[in-house]
Design a protein around this nucleic acid. Structure first.
Lengths: 123, 123
DNA sequence: CAGGATCCCGTCGGATACTG
DNA sequence: CAGTATCCGACGGGATCCTG
């Protein structure tokens, strides 16, 4: 029995934690789950995220195979981000997370602390 | 429009991201979802995490209402960690995450730790 | 418009030493 | 056994400037 790398030894939970480690990863995926977005659109959807960071996180997601980056060779430039197939398979997870998030918010005396982003995901 | 509580304006997804922001949060919750654990047990389950960090993340989870910390005034000391009610409501999320994590691992040439070149071998 | 490249800085995580 | 306290290095993320 060839022990195919440690692939089967990897903790799935840890793997996911690594994927969504970035501060804005989940929210980005959340937005992309609704529809394909241009870079500019994402910026407007996430005003708190600077360009550089947004780019970086998108690159991470792309590298991890969750996001597809489509570059249109035009002037002015146009780049569209969308979910890959695997990325789309993550949507149910996002749904569960969002759903539980609402539940959590409604059942906790939360301390917003640093302001939480409003990303228009309320229902 | 008295925005008394920004509770409804908070992005649930972002809220969750904050909760599980710590590097080991999800894994800790995962372990606690199986059964109540003593601090020592958690340490053995997570050899890579140092005591201080483990303590900190547990404290975060406790502060966020997901984990209950039961201290037995004995000698030697004994502390048990378990999921609160809200913490338990998070288990389905963990399940979905774990399930998707497996799917992701099996459908990606990734390298969560060691190396495993993902160049070439186009699909 | 969509970044790439830098710099800066706060935070997080890891290690160590000490305590009840 | 289960922490606490502390220091430090690494990384992440924000801002700014520059490019195709």
């Amino acid at each position: 029995m060839a022990k195919v790398q440690n692939r089967e030894e990897i903790c799935p939970v840890t793997a996911v934690q690594r994927l969504i480690a970035g501060k804005w990863k989940i929210v980005i995926l959340w937005h992309l789950s609704h529809k394909t977005r241009r870079f500019n659109e994402l910026q407007k959807l996430l005003p708190e995220v600077s360009r550089g960071v947004l780019t970086q996180q998108l690159r991470d997601l792309e590298r991890d195979g969750l996001v597809h980056r489509e570059v249109y060779k035009e002037v002015p430039p146009k780049v569209e981000y969308s979910l890959t197939e695997i990325g789309q398979s993550f949507i149910p997870v996002l749904d569960v997370i969002a759903k539980w998030g609402k539940y959590y918010i409604n059942n906790t005396r939360l301390s917003p602390g640093p302001d939480l982003a409003r990303t228009g995901s309320a229902d």
